[in-house]
Simulated assay, not measured.
Amino acid sequence: MAVKTIWQITHSCGHHAERDLSDRAADRRAGFAEWLAKQECTTCWRTAREGDEQGKAAWLEAKRAQEQAESEAWSQQYRMPPLEGTERAVAWGVRCRHQVLAAAYTTLVLEGGTSEMEWEEIEEAARAIDRAGWWIDQRSSEPDDLAELLQTATEADRPTENPHF
């Protein structure tokens, strides 16, 4: 007698389904059928996933709002100037600036050999960068590179003197 290929499954959600397990090796069908019985049916699984996506989107929106509020409070506390750019870029830039500078402070001052006085110079250079896009572009930069990145950016903003005039 051949091992059956059609199995009656009662899923954990209570729904019943008939499953063709002929694509599985005969000696693995019973174990797979048992595993299926511990899962929700396809319809319930999809419904739960749709709810998950909405829940995930709401969670992400709440997290972004919290990060935004923390970043704006931090910007005021450390007298960071407002950023320039589109509304969306400014909001993102404020978060990126906060994250970049906080990570750099931790790495350079708290864990590294940078003094508070040296950090104040870095912080002052950071205040000179008011373009949101610049901070967004630096969001993945290494904390050790921040001083050089700020120096390059502030030098690019300075008018150059032409010795020929």
Rank of each mutant, 00 (worst) to 15 (best):
L83W: 00
E87D: 12
E124P: 03
Y105K: 05
D27Q: 13
E123Q: 14
M80D: 06
E142H: 04
A69L: 01
E116R: 01
G133K: 11
T43C: 04
L108W: 09
H164G: 10
A91T: 06
E84H: 13
A103L: 10
V94D: 11
R49Y: 12
N162Y: 04
G31D: 13
S71I: 09
R79P: 09
A69E: 09
A103H: 09
E155D: 09
T86I: 04
E161T: 10
G133M: 05
E40R: 06
W92R: 15
A89T: 10
L149C: 09
R127F: 03
E34H: 04
E72A: 01
P82A: 04
S141W: 03
E142S: 10
M80Q: 05
L150G: 01
F165K: 01
E87W: 09
G85N: 10
P163Q: 07
Q151K: 14
A156D: 06
W59E: 14
T114Q: 12
Q77T: 04
H98G: 05
R139K: 14
G31N: 15
T152C: 13
C41Q: 11
A25L: 15
A128H: 13
A37Q: 11
S115T: 15
P159F: 08
R28T: 03
E148S: 15
K63Q: 12
W45A: 15
A33C: 03
I129V: 12
Y78D: 03
L149W: 09
D137A: 14
D137L: 10
A132E: 02
A153D: 07
S140Q: 12
A65Q: 14
R127H: 04
W45K: 14
C96H: 03
W35R: 09
D145C: 11
W134H: 12
G112A: 03
T114C: 10
G133W: 11
N162G: 04
C96D: 03
Q66D: 06
